[in-house]
Computed example of a mutant assay.
Amino acid sequence: MEWFDDNSSSSSNEVAQTIIDEIHKQKQLLAQMYSQPASERVVHHRQYVHCDREAAHLRLMQDYFNDNPTNGPTFFRRHFRMQKEMFLRIVEAVQGEDTYFQMSHDARGRDSLTPLQKCTTAIHQLATGVSADTFNEYLKVADTKGCLCLKRFCEAVIRAFGAEYLRRPMQADIGRLSDTRGATRISRDAQES
């Protein structure tokens, strides 16, 4: 639009008047649009993209969490940087802290992502440092949902475990850590001899 052109020789009053005129035009267009009955208005819907979240959950269960998973405990620990029992303890605690991690339904009445899918997305991001969009193919979690999972997960973990783990260490904690490290050093020295 010419009223934004710095080379224009029009005065500041003309520019201001042009802006005001443009605002009035937009206001009239909005008033005209909202004066129409709702049935005649053009409604823009979001495009629905079908992703098989249910199959993704079943695949996740088969790969890691069933009684006889495809990927054993060694792979689980390497993939998530923790043991499966610890992982499930965290998932359970997060579900108790935030309703976002409880099973729910989307606007179409379909099951939303399972708590396990949401927590897996967040924990894998934290464990490996990958971006949220890497889970779209495997877990059917889009990048925006992955970022939201990570944010809500961190907040829920802090609420669930903050009092116990986000505090200054006590003398007993330091002693226990020293004993553990000392025992590890002694066992390594014995193995090397």
Rank of each mutant, 00 (worst) to 15 (best):
E2A: 07
F4Y: 08
F4E: 12
F4S: 06
D5E: 12
D6A: 06
D6T: 10
N7F: 00
S8M: 02
S10Y: 01
S11E: 07
S11K: 03
S12F: 01
S12T: 12
E14M: 01
V15T: 15
A16M: 10
A16S: 13
Q17G: 02
I19D: 07
I19A: 09
I20N: 07
D21A: 13
Q26I: 07
Q26E: 09
K27E: 10
Q28C: 01
L30V: 13
A31G: 05
Q32M: 08
M33R: 15
M33A: 12
S35F: 06
S35V: 03
P37H: 11
S39G: 02
S39K: 12
R41Q: 14
V42N: 12
V42T: 15
V43Q: 09
V43D: 01
Q47R: 14
Y48P: 04
H50Q: 09
R53S: 08
A56V: 14
H57E: 15
R59F: 01
L60M: 10
M61T: 11
M61C: 14
Q62P: 00
Q62V: 00
F65W: 02
F65V: 04
P69K: 03
P69F: 04
P69W: 04
T70K: 10
P73R: 09
T74D: 14
T74L: 08
F76C: 11
F76I: 07
F76L: 10
F76M: 08
F76Q: 11
R77N: 10
R77W: 06
R78L: 07
R78M: 08
H79L: 00
H79P: 00
F80V: 03
M82Y: 02
Q83R: 02
Q83A: 04
K84P: 02
M86G: 08
M86F: 06
M86V: 15
M86K: 09
F87M: 09
L88S: 07
L88A: 05
R89E: 14
R89D: 15
E92F: 03
E92D: 15
V94R: 03
